[in-house]
């Protein structure tokens, strides 16, 4: 009798695990028109550069608040989202200088079209002509990205892979044409409560490879580096919007400069980005 109970217990446990393992989610965006959200982004980055025999530290913290409106969802599932950048601040601390720039009521607007898998199909700056544009809005708009979803039913515990290649063109604040490659390994953890609400939790991690070429003040510069990242993301189970994500990344890079002053600058970069989205009723 005792043996049987044990057997039943094990069987039940196996059955429940099996049932749990069978739970699957269609990981594809199901955005709802006219829904409004507030997106809060906090990024902290620190960099240590070895230069002229010194290890120079720099910290950059960025905080931003953006309103998102799902303007339209086409039958294909492609959705137009209007981002309105409300406020943001940038703090930089390096070489004894600690500066914070605050921008309030920025009202710069960017329209983004995303596919049901989260691919960015189009980005357009739609800031009204009478509104002053913030520096770096073009770069910022390129970073308004959705998490790439596999577009299929994924079982709890299942893993999948994706390779993402991004490029960033040189701009006023960035002299490099940067190409980054991430080989991402995803794992669907399952449903998990966070702040009193059930979400679908996804873990992701992988190596990062960065390379870049640029020119500044007549000097040619090249950059090569690699590192890794890991992230935890909580998706809304209806829309699959990433309502909370936390990404930790680190890179070891070397910048080489050739010109009147040849220099090789080894550099260690750490960063953490937290994105929190709340629905605006």
């Amino acid at each position: 009798m005792k043996k049987l109970t044990r057997f039943l217990g094990v069987a039940l446990l196996l059955a429940s695990t099996h049932t749990f393992a069978q739970e699957a989610f269609m990981l594809k965006y199901n955005l709802q028109p006219n829904k409004k959200y507030i997106q809060e982004v906090t990024t902290t980055q620190n960099v240590v550069q070895s230069m002229m025999g010194q290890e120079i530290k720099a910290d950059v913290d960025v905080k931003g608040e953006t309103e998102m409106i799902v303007e339209k969802v086409e039958t294909s599932g492609n959705a137009n989202i209007l981002y309105t950048i409300r406020n943001f601040s940038v703090r930089s601390a390096a070489m004894g200088k600690d500066t914070t720039m605050n921008f309030k009521d920025v009202n710069n607007k960017i329209s983004v079209t995303v596919s049901p898998l989260g691919k960015n199909l189009a980005t357009k700056d739609v800031t009204e002509p009478n509104v002053k544009k913030i520096p770096g809005i073009d770069e910022l708009s390129k970073n308004l990205k959705f998490m790439i979803l596999p577009g299929k039913n994924v079982k709890v515990g299942e893993e999948w892979k994706d390779t993402q290649i991004d490029s960033i063109k040189p701009s006023v604040s960035n002299p490099f044409l940067l190409i980054s490659k991430q080989d991402v390994e995803y794992k669907l953890v399952g449903k998990e409560a966070k702040d009193g609400k059930q979400y679908i939790k996804i873990l992701s991690k992988g190596p990062i490879m960065v390379s870049g070429k640029g020119e500044q003040m007549g000097m040619e510069m090249m950059l090569e580096g690699s590192g890794k990242f890991e992230a935890v993301t909580y998706l809304d189970s209806q829309t699959m919007m990433a309502m909370y994500s936390e990404v930790t990344m680190g890179n070891d890079m070397t910048i080489s400069i050739v010109g009147q002053q040849n220099m090789t600058i080894p550099m260690t970069q750490n960063g953490k980005t937290i994105v929190k989205i709340t629905e605006k009723k």
Partner: peptide, 27 residues
Amino acid sequence: LNHYSLHPQGYNWKSLSSFVYEGLNYE
């Protein structure tokens, strides 16, 4: 403790990098 990635970046040796061009490593 303070740095997440421990990748051994080392140095952009010409023989290890397709980016390093003539003149970059003169000293």
